[in-house]
Design a protein around this nucleic acid. Sequence first.
DNA 1: TTTAGCACTCTCAATGTTCGAGTGCTAACT
DNA 2: AGTTAGCACTCGAACATTGAGAGTGCTAAA
Lengths: 343, 343
Amino acid sequence: MELAARKQKILSAIVESFIRTGEPVGSKSLINETGLDVSSATVRNEMADLTNKGFLVQPHTSAGRVPTAQAYRYYVDNIMKVTPVAHSGREYIETTLYRNADSPESILQSASDLVSQLTDLASVATTPDGEESRVHKISFVQTGSHTAMAVVIASNGIIKTKLFRCEFLITPEILEVFDKALNKTFSGVKLSSINQPFIQTAAARFGELSLFMPGVLMAIMDGAKSAREISVCHSGYTRLMFTPDIDFLTARGVIEFLNNEHDLASMLENLPIDTSVSIGRENSRTELAQSSVVSTRYTVDGKPSGVLAVVGPVRIDYGRVISILESVADTVGTLIGELTDIM
Amino acid sequence: MELAARKQKILSAIVESFIRTGEPVGSKSLINETGLDVSSATVRNEMADLTNKGFLVQPHTSAGRVPTAQAYRYYVDNIMKVTPVAHSGREYIETTLYRNADSPESILQSASDLVSQLTDLASVATTPDGEESRVHKISFVQTGSHTAMAVVIASNGIIKTKLFRCEFLITPEILEVFDKALNKTFSGVKLSSINQPFIQTAAARFGELSLFMPGVLMAIMDGAKSAREISVCHSGYTRLMFTPDIDFLTARGVIEFLNNEHDLASMLENLPIDTSVSIGRENSRTELAQSSVVSTRYTVDGKPSGVLAVVGPVRIDYGRVISILESVADTVGTLIGELTDIM
DNA sequence: TTTAGCACTCTCAATGTTCGAGTGCTAACT
DNA sequence: AGTTAGCACTCGAACATTGAGAGTGCTAAA
């Protein structure tokens, strides 16, 4: 539905004023604040119309108007302009993320922290999935007389370490044997195919050697599993509780949902590839019926991978949030790309 | 100050009733609920006396009495009995912690989660410090053409990995050289003495070889630093916001304090060795003037090390919280002890 | 020393009142 | 036909008023 130019202008002014102040907007104050060249009565007529069309509601008869989800949707789709973050902001983002650019996890944790701090909203981020990734190499480090560490290096640059324990005394020679045998078996194998059956067939192939290996094989399986699994970083959940627009119980529901790794991950997986805004009931999750989710994906080597998102009240400065998210996503993509290049 | 038997009994009943319900306790209801064999008037007289002595306050004239911090203190010191957690609870604690007994960090994170869950309070825990600990061994794993991972294994069982990057192509031979040279230099050295000057003298000793090493040396220094540094785990901060006794602004202040790693760490360092309870203004921190902190330390090989603590409102079931903390601390100590035994 | 009785105090919840911001409608104006 | 001034109307927020109930301290008797 397209709105007439003046109606759109008024709607825009109402939405922006409400986003800024959180107070219902009246016809008079709207004229005062914006430079609209009409009388309050005209604005009232237009507002009545917008109310009929479902863009505005009145909390009560004698209050101003408040934008509905439909109004936010219209605003986001047709009115809002996203201006990229300023140069100085961009620089801040880059230097902040560079500082912890050790691993995908640390990059995304920093990204999540940063986004949350800049937007004052709760933020979540996921690492790239490793479904397509393969085992590059497995190394072993002795850490004790009966313990050692398996280092699984995946082709996507993810490195996972996992301790394991043996019943027998570990020697460098034994680790050497492990190294040879296991790299032969696992090198180039897709992470996603390293599962219980795979491990069992591998063990069978090792014959009696495999008797020494249960701990090692489990460690490798765990390592491979955590290397291919998406991990969800989050930050700023407590901010939701200080958001005046979100009442206590709602905030509790949202936080409980966000803390449930499984549900959250399944929601994040289903997010679209490009930047998207999901307002109020547009969210599939009932817990988020009074919240908005703004999300984007970063691309690594031109391929869309993990998600960067914020969760907050419906009253958000969408333009600002989107520009921050996209800017951070951009930097994250570059940094992770550099990480995997190294291989 | 010692109280007469009956006064103490009444105080005890008031404190326990208030801890349970959070409602001011009146003379009549106190008689109904507890089996006190006196009339309400007698109780009133005693209550008036306890009020004069500073143990009770009235929120207003016609309300019941509420225990003061002094009353909680007296209750904790003289009345309360700590009964160890039941066998089934104990078992639950042990199996939960066993599940993630990989490293001190993961043990203490689980412990913090567990304590928070069991007490419904915010919980913090610190890993043992590594000031006395020494470098046991340093290993290297190649992770890419120009990157490798240094594995610093400390004598306290802590294992830290740190990636580093070199300008030149890394080969197994180079890593071999690193391994020999650096283990010779660092083995047995106290973690606390590995600082910038130490690194520089070491570099000087390596002569021209040290030109290849800046990244490596930094990685080792960082690894040693993080191996000796106490890390603070925490859990359940959001619970503070759902605690009816704590108002919004106070909760915010407490959470902000807890999120400030530096301030929090300095408070935790100064906690006594045995179990302690700090009620309201007894806390050195003004942010915690309306909260209580219950803390204990776990012992590793008979030596008191890290802290396990909860932060919550003043109205806590101290007996229950203490028994949970001590039980978890006990298990944590054992598990970490086993971890270091392995060396 | 304990207790019954009683007047008193103060909060809480319900109810009433005022004030003002904002509305919709009508009639006049461009 | 669209715009605007004027006006009666509505409703919530803020404040005052009232009655009920819980709890108290004090007094006098047991």
